[in-house]
Amino acid sequence: MDSAATPPLHDARADGVLTLTLNRPERKNSLSEEMMAALQTALDAAREDRDIRVIVLKSTGNVFCAGHDLKEMTAARAHDDRGRAYYTQVMDACAHLMQTIVTHPKPVIAEVDGMATAAGLQLVASCDLAIASDEARFCTPGVNIGLFCSTPMVALSRNVSRKQAMEMLLTGEVIDAGTAREFGLVNRVVPRAYLAQVTAKYAETIASKSPLTLKTGKEAFYRQVEMPLADAYRHCAQVMVDNMLARDAEEGIGAFLEKRAPEWTGE
């Protein structure tokens, strides 16, 4: 198949869920310039789309994502600056993409089957939730080729303990899905045959909530987690006050007391 004629990303939507599928299995779904640009464009478009409440990231083939495209990275060494400007551009684009996921108003779920390595693991760790098949594998192998996984480390170290993060980063060894769950890198591990079904159930459950409440809660979570305890309580107390004054909170509480289903407006 001619990869030039194949869109790097396939998107589909149903019932408030946008599914973005990395669609370059012949290149191990690597985060090439084209792939990152496609993901960035899709995520940016979804930000203001009121019909989208949850985003799922998945892939085709037996590799979820192999990280940066090393062929592209190697080709840049032929530049006069040995690739410095190109590497800076690529790393900046990747950092922006990962931060877009974290700061996105819609919850993002990674559906992981196969191997997720280096920046591919970073992609999983940047998502709000991750559901993995029992065939999924994870690693930060940069140390094996003389390139420490420094940017994947940012997302990894915000998901697992320091000792576990350093174990992965220093050894470059592959961990299985069960170990990834023990480490806290993924939420659930399920048989491959049920992966899509379980992910869809999570997405459906979350999509049924108030979009304003999801946006409010996700933003508050990532802000408070980096704050000292007193500052976190101060910030979240104000978030609660503002949330209580929202129309959706009024509707949700009223529906609960009246024993009926709420009707969300996103306000």
Rank of each mutant, 00 (worst) to 15 (best):
S133G: 14
P105I: 08
A165Y: 05
L97H: 08
H104L: 10
L121W: 04
F148M: 13
Q122V: 07
G172F: 00
Q164Y: 07
S133H: 05
M98T: 07
C139P: 00
P152Y: 01
V124R: 03
A75K: 04
A75C: 01
D128P: 08
H96E: 13
L129Q: 13
V160S: 12
A66P: 00
A155Y: 00
V124T: 07
K71R: 14
E72F: 06
G61N: 09
K163I: 14
C139V: 02
Q99E: 14
A75M: 03
Q99A: 11
V108R: 02
Q164A: 13
L169W: 05
E135T: 09
T151G: 00
E111M: 06
H79M: 07
P152G: 10
V174N: 07
Q99R: 13
L147I: 11
C149K: 01
A130M: 00
A110S: 13
T140D: 01
P152H: 06
R53V: 04
G172C: 03
A118M: 09
Q89L: 14
P152T: 11
H104G: 06
C94M: 08
C94K: 05
R77W: 11
D128H: 15
P152R: 02
Q99N: 14
A132P: 06
Y86V: 15
R162Y: 09
D134T: 12
R137L: 08
A95T: 12
K163L: 12
S59G: 10
C139Y: 01
A165L: 01
F138E: 05
L123T: 12
M153G: 04
P105E: 06
V160T: 11
S126R: 06
I145T: 09
D92H: 03
T117I: 15
V154Q: 09
G61Y: 10
I131F: 04
L169R: 03
N144V: 10
M73C: 04
R137S: 05
V54D: 14
T60W: 06
A116M: 11
D81V: 13
S161N: 07
A66S: 15
D69S: 06
H96C: 04
D69I: 05
T100M: 04
A155E: 13
T171I: 02
M98H: 04
M73F: 05
S126C: 14
C149G: 12
L121M: 13
C127T: 06
S126M: 10
A118S: 15
M166H: 10
A136Q: 06
G83P: 07
M153Q: 13
